[in-house]
Design a protein around this nucleic acid. Structure first.
Lengths: 212, 212
DNA sequence: CGATTGAACAGTTTATATATTAGTCAGGCT
DNA sequence: AGCCTGACTAATATATAAACTGTTCAATCG
């Protein structure tokens, strides 16, 4: 998915643009500067990318592809139960978001700007992460630790419960440690929910549905 | 907490300001306009409020006080179990936020602007709502349906799990119905978590903690 | 004398003019 | 031909000037 589909020249352009995006941000890097870095004219950039925003989109796609790859390592961690992997997944996702927010602010800002214009990118990204999380849940179904009938639906619900720790709204307010403690509390609770459903099968859903 | 502490003149000022805030927004209403509405000079406003922002803060405090009162009615609903009240609480909170976002956009905008300058107001609000939620949890402890040792901590965790449905980030993306369905899914899961903990007592925490 | 005013000040917003930039394309180069 | 250039344009952004607004306070009023 990352740069492998791209022409050699396109890769060069993307690399030059990425350097400037990270240093100066999206709005403060001009097409002429990117072209100069690549020893070509600005007009030639448009032979490889339809617009400046598309370069930014590719930049974000690469970043997020790396993040999904990173999260995918949780799947192969040896000696970790599915429940532990659910926790690993969200703690790692939180840690990556928190760190990127604090020490790559320009990249974070660029992501936010891009998503305003290209919301589809955010959705695709959430779905890609959801597939990793879904694989963890399926593993748990296979070994009997979970009893989830609709994996995609539960995946979305899990993502909802952890949303506060993946959106930057809170990243100003508290330190990484305090937020991680709160996230662990959330995970404790939802894992206990899984434990209940695993022990009670379909009845688990009936019980909570009855509370409506 | 609302306007009862206020001087008669201060109430008049607040009422005039509120009308203009709702119609035109915070930045587009001037102190002179508020003063004119009250048949007084702009300078005289400062005998009753230290600054324009403080008028806005009072306006938001009144709005939010009404919202907390509204949520508090969930506590007295007859024939509802504590689990049902937890669900009622969050569905009502979501509904109020969603509706206010869509049909009082100026009030929503003013809230957001104010919180940037006065974050303390947001914290106080969250704590006030947390106290209502905490009372529901204590009720559940009393009648044996829950088994929560640290009510304030669990209150915060519950607020975290539902955060996505109380922040306006998603209010553009989906309709009220679809979001309510997702919120119900979240509540189903955390209530099952409570069910597990209630059935297993302290062991519940041990089980999920062991997944670390 | 306490309550109120409105002119004055500093800071900010808005309006206007100037400059820069994203994107195009007719032509040049290889 | 296929790739690239760089002047050109419309749109955006920056810089500057004018107008306005929040806030203060000496003077006025009742």
């Amino acid at each position: 998915m990352p740069t492998t589909n791209l022409d050699e020249t396109a890769r060069q352009i993307l690399a030059a643009a990425s350097r400037r995006f990270l240093h100066y941000g999206y709005k403060k890097t001009t097409m002429s500067e990117i072209a100069d870095d690549c020893n070509m004219s600005s007009g030639n950039l448009y032979r490889y990318f339809p617009s400046k925003l598309d370069i930014a989109e590719m930049f974000v796609r690469v970043l997020r592809g790396e993040q999904v790859d990173n999260l995918r390592t949780v799947l192969d961690a040896p000696g970790r139960s599915p429940a532990q992997k659910v926790r690993d997944f969200f703690l790692l996702k939180f840690k990556l978001a928190y760190e990127r927010f604090h020490d790559k602010p320009k990249a974070f800002e660029l992501s936010s700007e891009l998503i305003l214009e290209r919301p589809k990118v955010a959705l695709e990204w959430e779905n890609a992460e959801g597939r990793v999380l879904g694989e963890i849940l399926s593993e748990g179904n296979a070994d009997g630790s979970f009893a989830i009938d609709d994996v995609p639906a539960i995946t979305k619900i899990l993502q909802n419960t952890a949303y506060r720790f993946t959106s930057p709204a809170l990243f100003h307010e508290s330190g990484e440690e305090a937020l991680a403690v709160e996230l662990n509390g959330v995970i404790d609770l939802v894992l206990d929910g899984f434990a209940w459903r695993s022990a009670h099968g379909e009845q688990g859903k009936t019980v909570s549905a009855a509370s409506r």
